[in-house]
Simulated assay, not measured.
Amino acid sequence: MPDLLSQTSGPDVSVRPAHPSDKPTVERLWLMFRHDLSEPRGVLPHPDGSFRSEWVEAAFTEPGWAPYLLTCGERPAGLAFVRGLTGPTHVLNSFFVVRGARRQGVGLRAVRQVLARHPGRWEIAFQHDNPPAVGFWRRVAREVAGDAWTEELRPVPDRPELPPDAWISFAVAD
């Protein structure tokens, strides 16, 4: 099994639990994340300019959830929300790297750090209509689990009008 914390060259990347005092920063990063995701499916913001944000609240308040802040040096570079921490399978519910930090290995190093914090079974969803996400998540699965990962399509709960999400599954060892 590969060492999840091994580093490649590139910017200094750190992942730490997001504290309540980080919530305004996470909320701003969330807005960028949802804006990025709005393009493939043609989603427009709410009348006040916001996007759905119930997962931000859940990440900070719900049992079994954990919010993480990704940084490059002292600057925020992204976020990760993990759920299912009290069950047999952890879910990387949301993962985002700001555009200025992409294509430099930041996302791969950050996701390795998140996964290493919670050994066990993992599932990660992405959309096939987002080609960069398809390539990124398949690369993560290969680098973390070798050939021991699966991918399947699952319907989006309560959204029959949307195409199914792709889900990858693998295990992370201690």
Rank of each mutant, 00 (worst) to 15 (best):
P24I: 03
P76T: 03
R99W: 10
P45H: 01
A110Y: 03
R41A: 14
E74W: 05
F95L: 08
L85F: 07
S50W: 07
W30V: 03
G73H: 07
D22T: 02
T25L: 08
F96A: 10
G73T: 07
G78F: 07
R75L: 12
V106S: 09
E57H: 04
S94K: 03
G105T: 13
T25G: 05
D48K: 12
R34V: 06
T25K: 03
Q104H: 12
R34P: 07
W65A: 11
R28D: 11
L79R: 09
A66Q: 14
M32N: 11
L31D: 13
E57R: 05
R41C: 09
T89L: 11
T25S: 06
L70W: 01
A80G: 12
R52Q: 01
P47H: 09
T71G: 07
H46C: 12
S50M: 12
G87C: 10
P67R: 04
V56A: 01
P47R: 12
F81E: 00
H19I: 06
P63A: 15
A77L: 10
V43W: 15
R99I: 03
H46W: 03
L92E: 06
F60P: 00
A18I: 02
V13P: 00
W55M: 08
R103G: 09
L69S: 07
R103Y: 07
G49Y: 04
R28W: 11
R34F: 06
P47N: 13
A66F: 05
E27Q: 11
W30T: 04
F81H: 02
A101D: 11
A59G: 04
V13C: 00
R109A: 11
P63M: 05
A110Q: 05
L29E: 02
P45D: 03
V82Y: 04
D36H: 13
L70T: 15
V114N: 01
S50Y: 04
P20H: 04
F33A: 09
V114K: 02
R52D: 03
G78T: 13
R83E: 12
N93W: 03
C72N: 10
V98C: 15
Y68T: 06
Q104S: 09
P40R: 09
R99E: 14
R16G: 13
R52H: 14
R102H: 06
G100C: 07
F51Y: 15
A59V: 06
F96C: 15
T89D: 15
L108N: 05
V15Q: 04
G64S: 09
V97P: 01
E54G: 15
R102W: 10
V98Q: 13
F33W: 08
R112G: 15
E54F: 13
Y68C: 12
P20A: 12
P63T: 06
T25V: 15
S50T: 14
W55F: 14
F96R: 00
H90A: 12
V82D: 02
S14I: 09
N93Q: 15
S53E: 14
L31G: 01
A110C: 05
R112M: 08
L29F: 01
R83F: 01
R112I: 08
A101S: 13
W55P: 00
P24Y: 11
R75M: 11
G64H: 13
G100W: 08
L85W: 02
